[in-house]
């Protein structure tokens, strides 16, 4: 086999592998999408149909009219995630700046603490978390949940912000300092605009992670009006009586949409941010 046809085989193999991997990643989403457009009866056909024989928007309509407690969960998830993202951003921005710019002897200890904190799973903290929040009467409240979820995001986001700052030369801030600008002013008016991309990445990342939260909300929130999305879906739609697969797939689609849109719009920053954190960190 000469090199030219070997190269062609390699190329074909490459595209085949690419196709297979993409198929694996994307087909389940397609599957979910079309099941949401099938009638319940058609969903239970075996062998399954790859395109709805009876295309119907019935599940979507039923979701908007009857099963609309779902949107309460949705709204709650948004509120909690937005708050978590905002607070995480502020706190990790400040802490990351301190870690990167200020060389205090305690820094390595802080880094070790932050790294260690990322490793502790939520499950082990649940009971104590519950007692602590119960003592300050923040059980079943939005602030309580927001604080708990923020806490699990801060370690990673702080390290991320710190590595962003590491990548930006100190010269501009030094210049500002010489010009007599105070520390806070330097940080907010000068350093912040420089890491805007990174800040956006951190904000969106913590939003996504908070959107995904399950365990915190499961333990800390008890009333239906405050429930967030993952717990709400698990509680209400994976009930004891029966599965409604078409509905489950429908709410899954709607549950994913904002995240997909968010990601597509901000992916440039997200990608740069995640990459910078990992490659340099």
């Amino acid at each position: 086999m000469n090199t030219k046809s070997a190269a062609r085989w390699a190329k074909a193999g490459k595209y085949l592998l690419l196709f297979l991997i993409l198929l694996f990643l994307l087909f389940p989403l397609y599957w979910m999408l079309i099941t949401s457009f099938k009638t319940n009866l058609e969903s239970y056909m075996y062998p399954p149909t790859f395109w709805p024989k009876d295309f119907t928007t019935q599940s979507y309509i039923s979701l908007f009219t009857e099963n609309n407690q779902f949107f309460v969960y949705y709204k709650n998830n948004f509120i909690v995630s937005a708050l978590v993202a905002a607070i995480t951003l502020i706190i990790s921005f400040m802490a990351g700046y301190a870690l990167s710019r200020l060389h205090v002897k305690f820094n390595p200890v802080l880094v070790a603490l932050l790294t260690a904190s990322q490793m502790f799973p939520v499950v082990s903290r649940l009971i104590s978390l519950y007692s602590i929040l119960r003592t300050v009467k923040l059980i079943n409240t939005v602030p309580g949940l927001v604080l708990a979820v923020t806490a699990s995001q801060i370690p990673f986001c702080t390290m991320l912000m710190s590595s962003f700052f590491d990548g930006i030369p100190v010269s501009i801030e030094d210049a500002a300092n010489v010009d007599g600008a105070g520390r806070f002013r330097t940080m907010f008016s000068i350093a912040f605009p420089l890491v805007k991309g990174g800040a956006l990445a951190v904000g969106i990342y913590s939003f996504l992670m908070a959107w995904d939260d399950f365990l915190h909300a499961a333990i800390l929130i008890q009333s239906d009006e405050l429930r967030t999305l993952s717990v709400g879906i698990s509680a209400r739609y994976l009930g004891e009586l029966s599965y409604d697969w078409s509905l489950v797939n429908t709410i899954s689609i709607i549950g994913i949409l904002p995240m997909l849109l968010l990601f597509f719009f901000f992916q440039k920053y997200m990608v740069k941010g995640l990459v910078a954190g990992a490659v340099k960190g």
């Binding site: 502020i90 706190i91 978390l129």
Partner: peptide, 14 residues
């Protein structure tokens, strides 16, 4: 802020 939150919600529960 970061230290307080991490201590209260992560280190102490652990």
């Amino acid at each position: 802020p970061a230290l307080i939150i991490i201590t209260t919600f992560i280190l102490i529960p652990i």
